[in-house]
Structure formats: structure tokens, C-alpha cells
Write a protein that binds this DNA or RNA. Sequence first.
DNA 1: CATTTGGTTTCCGCCCAGTGGAAGACAGTA
DNA 2: TACTGTCTTCCACTGGGCGGAAACCAAATG
Lengths: 261, 261
Amino acid sequence: MAGGNREPGRTVTSKVLAILEAFEQSRGALSLTDIAEGSGLPLSTTHRLVAELTDWGFLSRSATGRYQLGIRLWELAQNTGRQLRDAARPFVQDLFSLTGETAQLAVRAGHEVLYIERIYGTKRVPRASRVGGRLPMHATAVGKVILAFEEEWVRTAYLNRDLEQTTPHTHTNPRRLAEELEQIREQGYATTLEEVRLGSCSIAVPVFHTGRIGAGLGLVLASAQGASMTRHLPVLLGVSAQIERATVHIPLESLLGINRR
Amino acid sequence: MAGGNREPGRTVTSKVLAILEAFEQSRGALSLTDIAEGSGLPLSTTHRLVAELTDWGFLSRSATGRYQLGIRLWELAQNTGRQLRDAARPFVQDLFSLTGETAQLAVRAGHEVLYIERIYGTKRVPRASRVGGRLPMHATAVGKVILAFEEEWVRTAYLNRDLEQTTPHTHTNPRRLAEELEQIREQGYATTLEEVRLGSCSIAVPVFHTGRIGAGLGLVLASAQGASMTRHLPVLLGVSAQIERATVHIPLESLLGINRR
DNA sequence: CATTTGGTTTCCGCCCAGTGGAAGACAGTA
DNA sequence: TACTGTCTTCCACTGGGCGGAAACCAAATG
């Protein structure tokens, strides 16, 4: 029965996107079979769609026959939120040069922080986040500072969920977390100590845009320097103010391609 | 006649990708009608596909109802060539800090240079290139240096095409360009003087990988400093060597999602 | 308030692009 | 040679995609 056993209600578009997203979970290049499994599609269907995506440059095929996301996709995606990234990057770089520590800029995407910029030196640091990566908000300094200054309903909605325990030090008690956020709002910055990953701590300040919280700007340091983190506060606040000044003229809607719900 | 006048042979996939690519040409957010025009699709078809793309986060809709590329796309695309970018970025940053000039890293994509990294300060420079952007190879220093060290057949293929004249100073004579490339290969670096854009000049050195040319590393400066460009050569060569060392262990095929033809 | 203008959303029956099981080709490996 | 895992091609069936048309909506205009 050719074509009989098809899964109804599944659009072609959803299949194409599922194929692309299959590359997100597993690092490195995938074989056709991997893609078929990852996207939950029959092999022959996968084969056809993958071939077309490759023609368009959205996937590329290495010498070994395995596939990976193509440069065309990356090229296209550079247009997303370019204004914000272009405007903010030099300042994040300043932050890095002035402190010598890994500097990062993140925004809220749903219930997570999404890292959109990250400047680091050649020295090795235990890294949990990466550009384009997500982390739970309550475990990171940037996340906490965003949450603290976010609108009331966002905060309560967040605290009414199960809070993931990333390390033994992650704060997951909703009540105490609410208090911590209150305190962050008062003091104007947030910190974490080995809450995402053992061996590293972080500090972050808010970046506002048109009165609302727009992003979080932070530093990641080795745990050893956790005690003296706050000495970076003046620089952090200064750079944050500069980013705010550099982005005021950018209309909110073109800042990022995020569907605010 | 519903569904009668359809354009045959056009796959759904191609329509979806055409919609995404429609955002590349025109800056800023697009209305549904704009997208339909840009992708050459009927309005109702566009509407259906755009709606699904939006659901998946590949497009986002602003308060005004216009569409732009979604953060989901950007997020996915960060996985493309991450190894190369992550490894190279700190060194490009060094190049910037050491020289104070806009530093950039580019690779060849077909007959053009594709800028994959670009570090610049807050001072304004006339910029022609941008991360994710392309330029003709013969008009840029990074492009020329890549072309010069590229395999013979690539070079001859390139010179047998029409060479675009970007500014009055662009070298477009194939014969003379071949000589220039020869000289670049001997001296180990390439320069341009207002060949892409009036007011700026550039200098670049090759970055090799497994014996082949892998990328071009360069600086962009204001034309005024064109005469003394070569004083940056030692730094450029040093940083290039460091990038080579940092990327030797990366398998060629996972460097970038480029289909080498 | 009626009208025009410029855009977005919904509708619906036709029909071909998409489908996926199966078989064939291919490359390692035992 | 047989086996195994993977990729590629084939092909007849069929429902998801299609897109013209009409309804809808909002803002500008008379």
C-alpha cells in the first residue's frame, strides 16, 4: 500500500523544520539515518527533503557523506537582531578588556535566558553558556537580574513552575527565590555562586530599554574570585548605561526576533 | 477553478526557503504582502506558510503585524561552524586590541568572501562588510589573499569571469590581477586602497589549515593610514599563526557548513 | 458617516506533489 | 562469499497543499 500509512495532519513545513532542529540536539555531523530518527520521519522522506535542503545550502554534506547545518542558514540568521548585537558588541568587548573576565549579554526567551553575545579570552574557563545557548533563569546571574526587573506576572508565572536543580547550590525554593529577587531589585545587581556549574560564579546588572528590562549584562569568573566579584560593579553599571544609550533609538520590535507572549 | 492554476514542479520546501530568503534582500520587518512579492508566491499560500513558520519561531511577528526572521533561526544557526568561530574569536579580538583597528576573518564561499567574524571598537569606520555578509574577492584584501593562495583552478576560474567594479579604484583587469596575486603569494600579504569603498583600505594575511588556504585575516583602516598599513604586518602574521595552531585539531569538514565545489 | 484604500484572514473543492514501503545499490566487515 | 548497516531509487496511491475569490479589518479620505 504505497503512501497509505502516512501520518495525517503533518505538514511538509513541519517536516522540514523538524529536520533542521534535529541538528540541535546532537553535536557534530549527522548521517541520514540519524536525521530520520531525530526528526521522526521515514528514511525515504528524510532523504528527499534533506537533498533539497542541501541544494539550497541550508544543509551541507561533508566528504564522509554526513550532513550538518549549512552556512546559508547561518548567513541568513545573521540578520536576526543584528541591530542590537551590532550596537552592543563593542561595549561588551569593553567590559571584557576592562575586567579581563568572560563578559556576556543575554535576553529572556520564554522561561529561559538566551545568550546573544559572549566575549572571552584565550584562558580556559569552565563554561556552561554559549552564544545561542539557553539556561534556566533562576540559576544564572543574568537570568536572575532579568527576572527581578521583569514585569510582575512574568515573575510569578516563573516561580510557579518546577525549578530545575542544576548543581547542589542552585536555589530552587520559590519563596526564598522571590525574596532574593526582591533584594536584587533593591541592590541593582545579581550574583550566583556555583549555581549553574561548579567552579564558576557570576555577577550581572540589568540593561533597560524604553523603561522595561531589555537584557542582562554579566561576568563569569572562577569561583576562587567569588568573594571579590563586586569590585567589577562600577564597570558593569557603566557599560550597561552605555549600551542603554546606544540602543534607545532602536525600535523595540526590531531588537530581536522574539515573540513576546 | 480552485487549485487549478498552480505552478507545477515547485516543491513546498522551496517555497518555505524562498520565504526565509525574502528577508535577506530588504532590511527590516516585512508585511505579508512584501513577503509574497519577495518570494514570488500567491498571497494565501504565503499566509499559510508564514503562519506555520511563526508558530515554530522561525519568524516572529511584531506589534505592528509585520514579520521578521525569528530568534529560533538564529539560535539554530549558531551551531554552524561553531568550532571554528569559537576557536578563532579570541585571537581576532587580540588582533583588535593590539592594533585598535577593525579586525576581520573571512572564508571563501563560491566566488565571494564571506565574513565570519568582525571585531570593531566604538569609533565609527566606513564599513562595507559585516558578519554574514559577502563581497567580491578581487576587491578586498582578505579576498585577494585567499584567492592568491587558493588552488590553481579556483584562481583561473575566478579570473575568467566578469570582475565587478565596486569603486573607481577596483582592479578589474584579469591580467594585471593575476600578476598582483602572484606578488601577494610572494610577499605573503595583500592590501587594498579604496577598492571596496572610498575612505577605507585594508591589509590581510592568509590562515592555513592542513596545508590549504583556510581563511583570510585582515584589518580595515581609514584611507589616511593607508601608507603605514604594513606596520601591522608582524601582529597579523603572529595572530594568523596562533589561529592556525588553535584550529589544526579541528577536522576540516566540521569547520564550516560550506559545500566546497 | 459612507467610501476608498491597502492590507490580512478565511474558505473550499480540485489535483498533483508528497509519500513511504520495498527493492536495489553500495561499502565496509567478518 | 555472505552479511550488515547505510544510502538511493522507484512508483502507485492519496490527502495536504493549493490559490482564486470573497470576506474581513483598520486607517485614511471625502
